[in-house]
Simulated scan of single mutants.
Amino acid sequence: MSAASADRSDAVEVVLRKAGRTKIRYPARLLSDDGTRVTVRAPWAGAGVRDFGFVRFEPGDVFVEHFWRDRWYAVKEVYAADGSLKGWYCDVTRPAVREDAVLTVEDLDLDLWCSADGTAVLRLDEDEFAASALPATDPAAAAAAMAALDDLELLAKEGGHFPRTHPAP
């Protein structure tokens, strides 16, 4: 194997940070990186089933995750084990940073869910965001986070604007 091909490894580790601490780390496969958007594929990294009431994340689910270096959010396509699209889970984050095989994102509490058929568009965790220190300690970041949530909601309600990539292995 040449040095050039060794540099193109598709193994990455996604590090999700929250309030300055690592919340979760998980392995993913790099699908693309165009310098602005990084797209990875990863199995559900949680322990067991997580039932939100409007969607269940469970072993066998596959996430195709899109992170931007110039946007304050990440969009995650959520597929069931049978390949059917459940919907999009969107995290409001600081812009992503990729250093070699590590992709780091800072979660800012706000989230949005859009069901596969577009009938459910839910703003999530606004209470957690309001209770966090961010609005007081970094008002500019807090404003960018709220604007990102508004942008995501508009994209969801307009329909057809979220990525859709079949999660083939």
Score class of each variant (00 low, 15 high):
residue 146 M to L: 15
residue 132 S to G: 01
residue 24 I to C: 10
residue 111 D to F: 03
residue 6 A to T: 13
residue 133 A to K: 04
residue 28 A to I: 04
residue 46 G to F: 07
residue 30 L to V: 11
residue 32 S to Y: 03
residue 76 K to G: 12
residue 30 L to G: 07
residue 153 E to D: 07
residue 87 G to R: 09
residue 120 A to E: 14
residue 7 D to R: 15
residue 27 P to A: 15
residue 164 R to K: 12
residue 2 S to M: 05
residue 157 K to H: 14
residue 66 H to E: 01
residue 116 A to F: 02
residue 28 A to N: 12
residue 40 V to R: 00
residue 162 F to T: 03
residue 131 A to K: 05
residue 89 Y to M: 00
residue 153 E to K: 09
residue 143 A to S: 12
residue 14 V to N: 01
residue 87 G to V: 08
residue 15 V to N: 10
residue 115 S to P: 06
residue 108 L to S: 05
residue 10 D to P: 11
residue 102 V to K: 15
residue 126 E to Q: 15
residue 34 D to V: 00
residue 84 S to C: 13
residue 52 F to V: 08
residue 21 R to K: 14
residue 150 D to K: 00
residue 88 W to R: 03
residue 96 A to H: 00
residue 124 L to N: 02
residue 43 P to H: 09
residue 87 G to Y: 07
residue 129 F to K: 11
residue 135 P to M: 04
residue 98 R to V: 04
residue 78 V to D: 01
residue 166 H to L: 15
residue 45 A to S: 15
residue 149 L to P: 04
residue 38 V to P: 01
residue 98 R to H: 05
residue 41 R to Y: 03
residue 118 G to N: 12
residue 80 A to T: 06
residue 113 W to N: 06
residue 80 A to V: 05
residue 82 D to L: 12
residue 168 A to K: 07
residue 97 V to G: 06
residue 162 F to R: 03
residue 25 R to L: 04
residue 21 R to I: 10
residue 13 E to C: 07
residue 35 G to T: 02
residue 142 A to K: 06
residue 6 A to S: 15
residue 78 V to F: 02
residue 93 T to Y: 02
residue 145 A to M: 09
residue 42 A to N: 07
residue 136 A to P: 04
residue 40 V to A: 03
residue 78 V to K: 13
residue 83 G to H: 02
residue 128 E to W: 03
residue 51 D to R: 01
residue 134 L to R: 07
residue 143 A to V: 09
residue 67 F to C: 00
residue 153 E to L: 01
residue 71 R to Q: 08
residue 75 V to S: 12
residue 96 A to E: 01
residue 45 A to K: 11
residue 55 V to R: 11
residue 139 P to I: 03
residue 141 A to N: 03
residue 114 C to R: 15
residue 117 D to G: 00
residue 143 A to G: 14
residue 90 C to N: 13
residue 129 F to P: 08
residue 107 D to K: 03
residue 77 E to L: 01
residue 46 G to Y: 06
residue 31 L to G: 00
residue 1 M to W: 06
residue 13 E to Y: 05
residue 153 E to C: 03
residue 83 G to T: 07
residue 160 G to C: 02
residue 56 R to G: 09
residue 30 L to T: 06
residue 127 D to E: 14
residue 82 D to Q: 09
residue 49 V to H: 11
residue 121 V to G: 06
residue 52 F to M: 14
residue 20 G to E: 00
residue 108 L to Y: 01
residue 147 A to G: 07
residue 81 A to E: 07
residue 87 G to T: 09
residue 46 G to H: 11
residue 7 D to C: 12
residue 85 L to K: 06
residue 14 V to R: 09
residue 152 L to C: 03
residue 147 A to I: 04
residue 149 L to S: 11
residue 66 H to T: 08
residue 79 Y to W: 15
residue 37 R to F: 06
residue 93 T to C: 05
residue 105 V to P: 00
residue 16 L to Q: 13
residue 4 A to V: 15
residue 12 V to W: 12
residue 113 W to F: 03
